[in-house]
């Protein structure tokens, strides 16, 4: 569902803006996916993803 939603959104830039403003229905996504999506869309410009590990073990 998330994949399809993003593929549809990138074809409609206005929908990304609406998502950023919390105006888009994210039906079909789980709660955690919704949280992740909203956070990523709103923080994309600032580039503030969690740094997570820097380890390269078998990665």
């Amino acid at each position: 569902m998330l994949k399809e939603m993003i593929q549809a959104m990138v074809k409609d830039p206005g929908s990304l803006l609406r998502a950023q403003g919390g105006q888009l229905q994210l039906a079909g996504l789980s709660d955690v996916e919704q949280r992740a999506f909203v956070d990523v869309v709103s923080k994309r410009e600032s580039g503030s993803e969690p740094r997570l590990f820097q380890e390269n073990v078998w990665m």
Binding site: I6, Q7, V10, V32, R35, A36, V41, R44, E49, L52
Partner: peptide
């Protein structure tokens, strides 16, 4: 960018991170 590859990947990464937090 135009396919949403990085957007999708970032959302998936953060989804798993939030599952960790929960």
């Amino acid at each position: 960018e135009k396919t949403g590859t990085m957007l999708y990947s970032s959302v998936r990464m953060r989804t798993h991170y939030y599952r960790f937090l929960d």
